[in-house]
Nucleic acid binder design. Sequence first.
RNA 1: GGACAGGUGGCCGAGUGGUUUAAGGCGCACGCCUGGAAAGCGUGUGGUGGGGAAACUCACUCGCGGGUUCGAAUCCCGCCCUGUCCGCCA
Length: 424
Amino acid sequence: MHDYRVLRDDVELLRGAIERRGKRDQYASVIDRGITLDAMRRATIQAVEEKKAERNQNSQEVARRKRNKEDAEELIAAGRTLGEEIAALEYELTRSQADLDAILLDLPNITLDDVPAGDESANRIEKTWGTPRESAGCRAHWDVASQLGILDLERGAKVSGSGFIVMRGAGARLTRALMNFFIDVHTREHGYEEVWVPAVVNRRSMVGTGQLPKFEEDMYGLREEELYLVPTAEVPVTNLYRDEILTASDLPRGFVAYTPCFRREAGAAGKDTRGLLRLHQFDKVEIVRYCTPEQSAEEHERLTRHAETLLERLGLPYRRVLLAAGDTGQSSAKTWDLEAWAPGVGKFLEVSSCSTFTDYQARRANIRYRPAAGEKPRFVHTLNGSGLAFPRVIACLLEHYQQEDGTVRLPDCLHPYMGTAVLG
RNA sequence: GGACAGGUGGCCGAGUGGUUUAAGGCGCACGCCUGGAAAGCGUGUGGUGGGGAAACUCACUCGCGGGUUCGAAUCCCGCCCUGUCCGCCA
């Protein structure tokens, strides 16, 4: 969400950002309409407040006369007229304000200067780590897993539908191991506070982080209750401090949370559907940071490193990709995807997405901080990243560490959590 | 789910239609006092939006949303949240 002022003072900045996202056609008329609505809104505010000031004076004069037992009938009649005029103006104001808010909620964030313009083909590989294993002779994770008996796709589909899975035995334990390993590293070594949060959130939370109103069709909702299943822990964790004012000394501040994640994947039918590649429900540990605007660039790098470290501990080769503006999420100002190599399917799989939202989410969720006692509150910057998403990490582990005999050797860091060094 | 009680500024707390355009206190900031401090005294102390170069000014804000009224923290309706008890329950 943007400030109303973006339509007065920074329209060219906004237009440029939308151009770089390749969305000029989609938004050109929306922006023009926003500018008109903002002017209307301000004119109406001036008119209505003028009338209200008049009404307040009038009422005080009525009070004074009544105290002195004087006649006030004439003033009361004048007040009645003012009331009607105010009601009419307020109706107008409510309407133009609602239209304007809808536009401001709809506009995407302004990407940072170093984000390349263009669509996904302009994404830039920033670095690579490790040596990708040759695909030759590597089986896909669904074959490895099925031979090990740790993944039951058929029964997941029976119980819930396609895109829902059952992990069994060592597979179930591996999920639990990853959760503990990831959270332990973030709390013990990276200074995050661990939180355990609801997986069902209200509408305001979904609007706060930017999932709604625009992406309603991607969300699972309990519509009767106005509640939604979280698509990521980002939603409950970022909204922890909605409508609050933090103190500068609290920043930067980080939280880590495990939650299941629910996504309808409405626009992705038939894409990457096999095995663990794309699920309607999956598990993920998420890291979220709040900081000041001055800190956010550095914090973005730090958070991304926190996610990368986990891949390095797991010994999984990966690359860091800077997303081009057109591939960057609506709320994000800059995103690095971490993609781990899955030799069996012969692809890099996105296992983490590390974004800085600048003040876009903070405006929507009204999360501020006070720079110093007595100073005006400012919006915080919010950041988050997966650290990490389990199913694709499991896919990479199974494919990268598979051995000729069908067993899978686990990286050292998981041994204590699994109680074994080998699956199978 | 049912019954009852509540929701006022950073905190406590007064306030049942018009000098409350929110009393008083605590806390906080600054000043005076002091060798220094405490105490005491004085001044100030939220948020949002509009106008303005600024000083400043206007409007809104007493859980949220409607309504009644010339005028609502105060009256009416709906909702949300918290507490206590009951019911149900992992």
